[in-house]
Write a protein that binds this DNA or RNA. Structure first.
Lengths: 241, 241
DNA sequence: TCTAGAGAGTTGTTCAACAATCCCTCAAGA
DNA sequence: TCTTGAGGGATTGTTGAACAACTCTCTAGA
């Protein structure tokens, strides 16, 4: 996220220093708290509907209420928390309409990115290869959480081919929100499993440069994904039926 | 933005009360401050690059620093302000890359929305008719600020046809950021003028249901718009050349 | 069964203080 | 002349406490 000035090419060691500094602490307390909570939410440790009490979190995280609220805001903007006036912040409970909405925008962005691809340097597909391989590997191990992560990364890297910071950001938010939905259904394995091989198919089409076919395949892919998720959603266990 | 429970149909007068309350104070102080600043930024009263001093604004607006900072955060998320650690918030200075990026996402969303339109109820085009008329009227009067506003509303209403809250939100941010760019060029009239009639053309195609042609027209439209804006940008007056 | 109201608990907002950082200036040194 | 580094003023980052405003729940009373 943070933009650092590129060190001059001749100063090789500066590169590594810059890399270290980047990981160092160029962030505010609120951002670090947000990062911590973000993981909790994305990993599903905090189930949708959970209220995040200011009092409790201030105690646990050893930050002031103001700083905590700042972190809340950051996550609210990412769609990972919702804020209700005078009631606090909650992990969002997405309903079916949200799913449809999410997939609508997702199809718009992802398919359009693929459709507009041209003169693609094969090197740029490298991250996608890695993600597909990671997904296949995790599937073999039966590690479905890792499959989910690999899938998310695949799609994030896919839109990254567009070279647009704002598209990246929009997609990131989209995928994070979508991940919330997966946590509310009973058996995410069933949902992720088919897409391990479909990601491979998609990647093959990109390698051979068949972007139009890839775009169409992705369109169907996302429609199927949506349908399955919606179906799983209707059977989901709920606390307030 | 805020979702209110609909009053029961039989209680007619409640409707008007609800409408009043809506405008009343169903918002936090921070939101009201943000609304105030938002207008200043969008209208161009605060030129890009301006730093918004906490000290000064706290004095003028009679709110606490914390509340002000919360308002800053809201606007930062909308892309109307940028925040630099330990340096404060600034009105963003978009560069040419930002313009290209903005238009990239804009084409993706707007064209895709139009392309996917089907079975469109003519009633839903009503707001678009109004916006086009408002634009034409403002152009006749020579009120270019109003032309700009009408144009923005036209495009906002256009994507609204997709019925997607998240698409609306993304587009809103996009258009707001873009408006910043228009404030940095010398003669915005030249830029807005051609699109008064092009919006009309586009709308006509939607009325007759020729969505594919409309999508293609919009694609060209946005490319032209981008090219002109970039060109105007290169000639823009700058403080630090 | 419904309503009004009291009370507890939580969030919204403000304030004042201190810590951390940036930015400018200026002087010493190569 | 250019670079480097050390002040020092100004601004932002963070904290904790206090009070106001609001929601939610429960109960008394009609």
């Amino acid at each position: 996220m943070a933009a650092f000035p590129e060190p001059p090419a001749h100063a090789g060691w500066l590169r590594t220093v810059a890399a270290e500094v980047r990981t160092f602490d160029r962030s505010s307390t609120a951002e670090r708290v947000a990062e911590l909570l973000r993981h909790r939410v994305i990993e599903g440790d905090l189930p949708p509907g959970t209220r995040l009490s200011e009092e409790q979190l201030v105690e646990v995280l050893h930050v002031s209420r103001n700083t905590l609220r700042e972190a809340f805001r950051l996550l609210t903007h990412e769609g990972l928390l919702v804020h209700r006036l005078h009631r606090g912040v909650f992990v969002p409970e997405l309903d079916e309409d949200d799913l449809v909405d999410l997939y609508r925008l997702r199809r718009t962005i992802e398919c359009d990115v693929v459709r507009r691809l041209e003169r693609l340097d094969p090197v740029r597909l490298r991250p996608l290869h890695d993600d597909v391989a990671a997904g296949e590997d995790a599937a073999r191990r039966g590690d479905w959480v890792a499959v989910g992560t690999a899938n998310m990364r695949f799609h994030q890297h896919l839109v990254a081919l567009a070279d647009s910071a704002r598209i990246d950001e929009t997609a990131a938010r989209l995928l994070a929100e979508l991940r919330l939905a997966f946590h509310t259904v009973a058996a995410p394995q069933r949902l992720y499993a088919p897409y391990v091989s479909r990601n491979r198919t998609l990647l093959d089409l990109l390698v051979t440069g068949e972007t139009d076919r890839a775009a169409k395949e992705l369109e169907v892919y996302l429609h199927d994904s949506e349908a399955q998720l919606v179906q799983a959603y209707r059977k989901r266990p709920r606390r307030n039926p």
